[in-house]
Amino acid sequence: MITSRKLDLYPILWRLPLLVWQGLFFVVPLAFMAAMSFWLVKNYRMEPAFVFDNWSRMLGRGAFWDAYWLTLGRAALAGVLATVIAFPASLFLSFRLSESARRFALLCLIVPFFTSFLVRAYAWQVILAESGPVNAVLGAAGLGPFTMLNSGFGAMVGYLTLVLPLVVIFQTWSLAAIDKNLIEAAGNLGAAPLRVLGSVIIPAAKTGLVLGAVFAFIMTFGDFVSPFYLGGSKPPTLTILIIDTTKSGQQWPRAAVVAIVMILTLFAVATAALKAAYGRRG
């Protein structure tokens, strides 16, 4: 009996750390945030309650919906742009480079994830400034100066800096796995290159293409650095709305409403996309 109990303890001890930590510090905080969205704020203090004030107040605001559609639209645009911009590069990486060169390129693309996005955003602020290097070059060619910061364009530059490496990695991972015989066979059967691309390569790489676009969407949807430091923060995105609501006036319950709407939206988009990515091919 004793030995069998000991044996039972072993797997449980390895299972427990994750359950305890992510339970206490991931699931519980999110659940608490959901509960908090029904609380009241009186004299800058939160009081437990179960009222829909925060919900009706936030969802009843035109400004909230403006922010919602702006964020959704930008995230969708970033997903599409990143997919289209990354695709030729991924094709080249997958079919024209040797295995080791491709691996080296992908390793390089991992590096930006671990470098401060804040500092990169600040670098773009300088590069794209009215008197910055880009306008200096354009000025030498007799163009500009252009105002690129504090606009949708500036924010998009930030979003693409954030998501392009990941999209290229997903696409290349999918494209490089395609059986080269398939492509050759299509060519031998007389399919023109564009036809091969449309009828063989893209359907076969669907999973990576969709996953790349979805992650681009998710990351853009949740980013506050690009809209804040490069997009001029007006009009606000949902992330900026959360920060403003949290940091001023202790209106945490209202910020929680925005957060929950964001989670539900992401969940819906991710579910639909995964269905598309892993659903029946063709």
């Binding site: 991931f26 905080p29 608490f32 949290t246 945490w252 957060a259």
Partner: peptide, 27 residues
């Protein structure tokens, strides 16, 4: 579900995790 719990956190926008953490840790 166990694996989802293990892999989900990085997909949640950080601003949301920040808000949830702030609220919970203050409690």
């Amino acid at each position: 579900a166990y694996l989802a719990l293990a892999l989900l956190p990085p997909t949640l926008p950080l601003v949301i995790l920040g808000l949830a953490m702030l609220a919970w840790l203050s409690q």
